[in-house]
Design a protein around this nucleic acid. Structure first.
Lengths: 352, 352
DNA sequence: CCAGTCTCGGAGAGCGCTCTCTGAGAGCGC
DNA sequence: GCGCTCTCAGAGAGCGCTCTCCGAGACTGG
């Protein structure tokens, strides 16, 4: 404040001196004060206040090997991250959980392989205790990076690679994509629809594949022309819908793998004069706030609780951190942590 | 890898031993290798590779007092941050610049005063070398927090408080809101519009105030009923527009303080059967991608280069960091760093 | 050929903190 | 009243790294 060249921050030593105790005692007080008599605690606390002491994290981390900070790595371009409400909801859930456990959330953006190096160094450098990986692609490179850095990881969404590849250690949180898709398709079938099409997500993403699998579970005999790959954008949904109408003008039901794509599809259906749901029934996926409810007509969709998934991811990570830290109850197996698959629920609105 | 209990990370000591040099030499090589003969450099590099050595940041930071990490603090609710394209663009600019200088971007979310404590501790704990504060409110509490933590700061947008308050030290990057607003209003006036209304942003935000000032610069005699406060949302813009039409059905021009509000206003004008621009000419502000160009009709607006502003913020911070670090050329005044105001430019499309 | 200069590598002192280990004093039972 | 345990505070050893000396050797000029 007074000095332009930042005044040297007070150290524990200074606090101890002022309180008339040893550094060790001061440290104890700063860290909760267990094992220190009341009056002494008071004296140290006062010294801390008077000096405006704040522990130097680097020094603390150096010895404790903890940061109380969790990285959330998003491997999508910024524009994507800051536009897709999916991330917003997931991050909010994570933030809630982390904050509750006094952990700092550190959001790391990675615009692809270009800066894997820096990211890897950052992780391995011990800036954070663990990492949550949020990427629709959920590919292995980031996971491997973190793993190589010795940082516990929980990923959002089932990983792309087979279990053999990722090893039993990789925890994830995902929703029941396949089951949700089945519900959606059964609902359409239950409405008497006979020609049901599917607009998938990008098929390099496990969620897309799982939803497609769910679709096929119910309608294994669907001809190929009724399945078109989209890209989780409104335009992609519109394009897919146009293609579907060209190929099969007689279709009477559509299951889009996301609400956003469904909204694009609805637009095209309206343009082409098809009534929804009378002529074509449409079901989406996600129950994304400010999407599903606002389409015209409001979208019947499969709800997944994204915020809750974020919360679960954080909780899972914190728990696995606790295990890693715990001085190991000998060889006693710690309660095994396992990945979580959250349920989905069909939300019926007007579009189907 | 092999060991579930993370194998102890190799230290510099280990690298040095393997390369048959001292720790000091190993350190020199790791940090660029200046002053070490070629062959030795090679040997050390090889040892680093073989051991997969990665420097422990905490230890390094402890002595260098540098992190090569910059915090971007966003003091808005997650939903806001992840929805408003404004942040996306600004963060992208920041990210670009930081990445170019090998700095890690650390995004810190703060859901308000509730966790000022943690945030303050994080900053003061020396996790980051500097902070960029992104908040439309740009109020002083965060700035004070960072300042108290001894962390250099650059804020996005002119601070709310007067210069006396923030002190000469607070750097910011903002666009020429006032000048931009003047251009917008002059354009409307130049089209022969006589009853020009203004939908402002929230007036607790400096940007809104500046734009209002610009409006008044050109039309000082505008009656109060032609000025309505909005909130930078489409609905807010719509509400304001409705109010304006009620109060002054004869208005023939509107300057909205943001594209998003302008889009809401356009909707209302269309509902009420006013043709744009024939009956009412509309000008927005921001030239926000995927907003201004996609309204019907496309929006005439005041362009500000948000990504560039992000880049400038980062550059300014890095530069002030460099000064702070530089062992001070004695008492020689360092080249003064000053806040930056970027120009705006009127982009004429169809709405006015 | 030797003093002087320069280059390069090593020794070692911390950075600020935590945590174990030790010892001092208090409290207890017999 | 003596030895015991138990509580609590201090001493001190690092955590892994950087960086400032210093000294050893190579090289230059006279």
């Amino acid at each position: 404040m007074s000095d332009p060249v930042s005044a040297p921050r007070p150290t524990l030593e200074a606090v101890a001196a002022r309180a008339g105790v040893s550094r060790a005692t001061a440290s104890r007080v700063v860290n909760g004060g267990a094992g220190v008599r009341g009056p002494l605690v008071e004296r140290v606390r006062q010294a801390v206040d008077e000096l405006g002491y704040i522990p130097n994290q680097a020094a603390r981390t150096l010895v404790t090997r903890r940061n109380d900070a969790i990285a959330v790595i998003v491997a999508e371009p910024e524009t994507r991250v800051f536009t897709d409400p999916f991330f917003a909801q997931q991050v909010r859930g994570i933030s809630r959980e982390l904050t509750g456990h006094d952990n700092q959330l550190v959001l790391l953006l990675s615009d692809g392989a270009s800066d894997d190096g820096r990211l890897g160094r950052y992780l391995a450098g011990g800036h954070v205790d663990g990492a949550l990986i949020l990427s629709l692609h959920a590919d292995d490179s980031l996971t491997g990076l973190a793993r190589g850095a010795g940082v516990p990881v929980v990923i959002g969404g089932r990983p792309t690679w087979s279990e053999e590849h990722t090893g039993r250690g990789t925890l994830y949180v995902d929703c029941d994509n396949r089951g949700g898709a089945r519900d959606a398709v059964r609902h359409l079938a239950g409405l008497g629809r006979r020609r049901i099409a599917h607009i998938t997500g990008p098929l390099d993403q496990p969620a897309s594949v799982d939803r497609l699998d769910g679709f096929r579970d119910v309608l294994p005999d669907t001809p190929a022309e009724l399945i078109v790959e989209g890209d989780f954008t409104p335009d992609g949904g519109a394009r897919a819908m146009r293609l579907l109408l060209e190929r099969s003008p007689d279709l009477d039901g559509v299951f889009a793998a996301s609400d956003v794509m469904a909204s694009g599809a609805l637009r095209v259906l309206r343009e082409r004069g098809r009534r929804v749901p009378e002529d074509v029934a449409v079901v989406g996926f996600d129950d994304m706030v400010s999407v599903a409810e606002w389409t015209d007509p409001p979208l019947t969709t499969v709800r997944q609780d994204i915020e809750e998934m974020g919360r679960l991811m954080a909780r899972l990570l914190l728990r696995s951190l606790a295990h890693a830290t715990a001085p190991g109850s000998g060889d006693l197996q710690p309660p095994l942590l396992s990945s979580i698959v959250t349920p989905t629920r069909l939300v019926v609105r007007a579009s189907a």
